[in-house]
Design a protein around this nucleic acid. Structure first.
Lengths: 107, 107
DNA sequence: ATAATAAGTAACTTTAAGGTTACATAAAAG
DNA sequence: CTTTTATGTAACCTTAAAGTTACTTATTAT
C-alpha cells in the first residue's frame, strides 16, 4: 500500500479522513480505536493515518505497542491561510460596492 | 465527460481548480480566457468550471456566446465553517492548558 | 449566407487513490 | 516461551477523476 504524498487540500478531500479529524477533536485515539468507527479494514485506516500524519494534521505517540493519534495544528494552518485570502476578497469586495453606492447616491 | 458531483472539499482538492479560483479573485473571466492560463484542453477547463459552479464557488453570466465566471461565496462558506470548528478546538485547548498550568502553580 | 468564434457534449483512455487480503513484527499477557 | 494484541507492509484490484479528441450548437462578424 504505497502511501501517496498528498497536499493538505487533497488530504481533507476524503470524507473518512475528515471524520477521523472530527473524532480526534474529541479525544486522542489509537489506530484500532479509531478503526472501530469505520467500515473499512484496519490497514486502510492505517494508511489514512499515515497520510494525515505526513500532511501535519496529527502527531503520534507510541506507547508500548499502541500508537496514540493527536490533532496537530500545522496542517490546519495551511488551510486557514488559504481561506483567509478569500475572506479578505469578500470583505474588500463589499467595501468596493459600498463606496460605489455612496458615490451614486451623492450624485 | 460526465461531470461528477463533488463536495466542496473534493472541489478544492484539485490544484487546477484552486488556481482557477485564484485567477477569478482578480477578475471575472470567460471560459476561454481562463483556459489560456492552463496547459489542459478547453473542454477540460470547461468541466472544472462546471464542478466549481455546482459546488457554489462561482456564478456564471452568459453574455452572447461568452460565459463570464465570477466568484461566489456559497462554496467558501462551507469550508470556513469546517475550519472554524477546528479553530475553536485550538483556542479551547489552549485555555485548558492555561487553567491546568495555573492550578499547578498555585499548589 | 458563410465563416469564425465560444462553449457544451459524447465517447473513450489513463492513472492513482482507496480499498482489499495475506503476511511480518513487536510488545504485552498467560 | 507461547499466545494474543496492535500495528505496519506488500501485492494486488477496482473505480472514478481528470484528461483527451471529435463533433455539435449557438452567437457574432464579414
Amino acid at each position: 500500500m504505497t502511501t501517496p504524498t498528498l497536499d493538505v487540500f487533497q488530504v481533507i478531500g476524503d470524507p473518512s479522513r475528515r471524520k477521523m479529524l472530527m473524532l480526534l477533536s474529541e479525544d486522542s485515539l489509537t489506530i484500532n480505536s479509531l478503526a472501530d468507527n469505520f467500515d473499512m479494514s484496519r490497514p486502510a485506516v492505517s494508511k489514512h493515518i499515515k497520510i494525515l500524519y505526513n500532511a501535519g494534521f496529527i502527531s503520534i505517540q507510541d506507547i508500548g505497542r499502541e500508537r496514540y493519534c493527536t490533532l496537530k495544528q500545522d496542517g490546519f494552518k495551511e488551510l486557514q491561510h488559504w481561506i483567509s485570502y478569500f475572506d479578505k476578497f469578500w470583505t474588500t469586495k463589499l467595501k468596493k460596492l459600498e463606496t460605489l453606492l455612496n458615490n451614486k447616491l451623492s450624485n
